[in-house]
Simulated assay, not measured.
Amino acid sequence: MFGNWMKTSILMAGIVALFGAVGAMIGGQQGMLLALVFGGATNLWAYWFSDKMVLKMYNARQVDATNSPYLYNMVRELAQRADLPMPKVYIIDEAQPNAFATGRNPDNAAVAATTGIMRMLSERELRGVMAHELAHVKNRDILISTMSATVAGAISMLAQFGMFFGGRGDNRPHPAFQILVMILAPMAAMIIQMAISRTREFGADRGGAEISGDPEALAAALAKIEAYAKGIPMQTAEAHPETAQMMIMNPLSGGGLRGLFSTHPSTAERIARLRAMVRGA
């Protein structure tokens, strides 16, 4: 667990440094300061409002012990095991099996599951998935992923701004260099953002297995989701690919780039790590 946090800290430092460098290229120290102020403002906005936006985007409906006792009581039991406040619980009417957590902190968290995942998984497997989502809440991964995504987007905006307005007089970079920065800076930011996302998924797998006490259940759930999710498009996720990193499994169809540009680690590696926990490795 410490290793995951160390990797995340290094990656976050890298993306912030890249942000400052792009700002400096646009307007020296003033440009870097403006870039960091802009990044801080957008992060603050995302911190407070991203959960409401995402839930509305997916037309998620809140449920309770009366209208969805199966899911609600499962989440409540797992939250108690994790020593977390009870999050809000939502159901999304989507055939694709998937789930996510959102919210700015454990006191203002929400977990959501699709109707597809509730139909497909056994109770034991679904319990493993919801424990994974609660691990995201406990680790404050929602905040971390929101910050990294926001900074990456800001870098892209700054790079494009610098293409047309970067520098003044003798400080203006060569046009060829500006074009290079406009292309490479957003790409580098995306690579770092995806690396942060993959690191946090490994951490949530381990944390979820510890909360549920059943690593094999989560491993089995991931294998099932991997087998079915790719063949069942998730319309909202296709329209808003920036939300893909929130899901327990990448919901996007159409084989995107793997490796450096993947929002999630390979399912095979995730399953292998969980089964190593079963063996006590």
Results as ranks from 00 to 15, higher is better:
4 N>L: 03
9 S>H: 09
11 L>K: 12
12 M>Q: 13
12 M>L: 15
12 M>T: 14
13 A>I: 12
14 G>R: 03
19 F>V: 03
26 I>N: 14
28 G>C: 09
31 G>D: 07
35 A>H: 04
40 G>I: 05
41 A>H: 00
42 T>A: 08
42 T>D: 03
42 T>G: 05
43 N>H: 06
45 W>E: 02
48 W>A: 12
49 F>L: 13
53 M>Q: 13
54 V>G: 02
56 K>P: 00
57 M>P: 00
58 Y>S: 08
65 A>I: 08
66 T>W: 00
66 T>C: 05
68 S>W: 04
69 P>W: 02
69 P>N: 08
80 Q>M: 09
81 R>L: 14
83 D>L: 08
86 M>N: 08
92 I>Q: 08
97 P>H: 12
102 T>Q: 01
105 N>F: 00
105 N>T: 03
107 D>P: 00
112 A>E: 11
114 T>L: 10
114 T>Y: 06
117 I>E: 11
118 M>H: 01
119 R>K: 15
119 R>L: 09
120 M>R: 08
121 L>Q: 04
124 R>M: 05
126 L>E: 09
127 R>Y: 09
128 G>I: 12
128 G>N: 07
130 M>W: 01
133 E>L: 11
134 L>E: 01
134 L>P: 06
135 A>W: 07
138 K>E: 10
142 I>Y: 01
144 I>A: 12
145 S>N: 14
151 V>A: 04
152 A>S: 14
153 G>Q: 07
155 I>E: 08
159 A>M: 07
161 F>W: 14
168 R>T: 15
169 G>F: 04
169 G>A: 04
170 D>G: 03
171 N>C: 01
174 H>C: 01
177 F>V: 15
178 Q>N: 12
180 L>T: 10
181 V>S: 10
184 L>A: 14
184 L>K: 02
184 L>F: 13
185 A>Y: 06
187 M>E: 09
189 A>Y: 04
190 M>S: 14
190 M>T: 14
191 I>C: 03
192 I>E: 07
194 M>L: 02
195 A>Q: 12
195 A>D: 07
197 S>M: 03
202 F>H: 14
203 G>Q: 15
205 D>Q: 07
216 E>C: 09
216 E>P: 04
224 K>E: 15
226 E>G: 00
229 A>M: 02
232 I>N: 10
232 I>Y: 03
236 T>V: 15
236 T>K: 11
239 A>L: 13
241 P>D: 09
242 E>M: 15
246 M>Q: 13
249 M>Q: 13
249 M>K: 11
257 L>F: 11
258 R>Y: 07
258 R>K: 15
259 G>T: 05
263 T>W: 02
263 T>V: 08
263 T>K: 05
267 T>N: 10
267 T>Y: 00
272 A>P: 01
277 M>R: 04
279 R>D: 13
280 G>D: 04
281 A>P: 00
